[in-house]
């Protein structure tokens, strides 16, 4: 259960050097195009001709491939199977099993939907592999995102692994006291409160202390804050963002116009 919390891999590449906002725009643009472009093969082509080459350009292809096969592929496959079996569309039955039938149409439909979801999730993975969360946050804060949001995101990423470790400790402790977490349904349902209670109470105790601590560091101060790191935003970044915007508009226009 110990998930790696930040996917980020520190390397030097063209993608790593892009401004975080440009990369975010790239992700959003790819997702919008995958979902709105009216041509059947768009998500497939995007994956082959954009996302995979980008991951190579970012020099994170091995990690990208690993995450994709471990995290995304199982969900996408499950989605594909469910949709292929259960979409009641099409006439041309290829395969029949009890009340389930696979038609050519449902197969195609399922393949595209699974691909769209795959594109959506894999672009985000690529983004996370090449962008450090605090880099993104300080860039967005510089552009006017309130500092409180940055605080929430960054400190969640810090607290979450601690909380997961704490949950493991509580489970182990309650088990050693004889709490039943594995047998009948009623016993398992009954063990929710003894596990949830200590976890929540234990973490809520910290709130007041933390509030005082960040208050003392000027959390609510309205003055502009200086930053230790300067994050470059080149003319090429701006250009890429405009091109992406144009692509998104074209894709949506094509969708409205052709369908």
């Amino acid at each position: 259960m110990h998930e790696r919390l930040s996917f980020h891999i520190k390397r030097d590449s063209l993608i790593h050097r892009l401004n975080p906002l440009t990369k975010l725009a790239l992700v959003l643009a790819l997702v919008v195009v995958a979902f709105t472009a009216p041509w059947y093969w768009t998500p497939h082509i995007l994956l082959l001709l954009a996302i995979i080459p980008l991951s190579m350009l970012g020099r994170v292809f091995p990690e990208f491939f690993k995450t994709a096969t471990r995290l995304i592929l199982p969900a996408a496959t499950f989605l594909f199977l469910m949709q292929a079996f259960f979409q009641p569309i099409g006439e041309d039955v290829i395969f029949k099993f009890y009340f389930l039938d696979i038609t050519q149409e449902s197969l195609m439909f399922a393949f595209r939907n699974a691909m769209r979801v795959f594109v959506m999730v894999s672009t985000f993975t690529l983004f996370l592999l090449t962008t450090h969360p605090s880099e993104l946050m300080s860039d967005l804060t510089r552009r006017g995102l309130p500092g409180q949001f940055a605080y929430v995101i960054i400190s969640t990423l810090q607290i979450l692994p601690q909380m997961q470790a704490k949950a493991q400790t509580i489970i182990a402790a309650q088990r050693s006291r004889g709490l039943d977490t594995e047998s009948t349904f009623l016993k398992r349902a009954g063990s929710v409160l003894p596990l949830v209670g200590p976890l929540v109470f234990g973490s809520l105790v910290e709130v007041e202390e933390r509030a005082i601590a960040i208050e003392a560091r000027g959390f609510t101060s309205k003055h502009a804050k200086t930053s230790l790191h300067e994050i470059p935003d080149l003319a090429s970044d701006k250009f890429i963002r405009w091109v992406l915007l144009a692509l998104v508009i074209l894709s949506i226009a094509a969708n409205l116009w052709l369908s």
């Binding site: 398992r188 976890l199 929540v200 709130v207």
Partner: peptide
């Protein structure tokens, strides 16, 4: 300020408890 401090903790609570419940099937 207390709200801003509570929010990250609440998010972590959501996720951690979500995972514990998966464990309890």
């Amino acid at each position: 300020t207390q709200t801003w401090v509570l929010i990250p903790i609440a998010i972590a609570i959501n996720i951690a408890i979500g995972q514990v419940v998966v464990l309890l099937k």
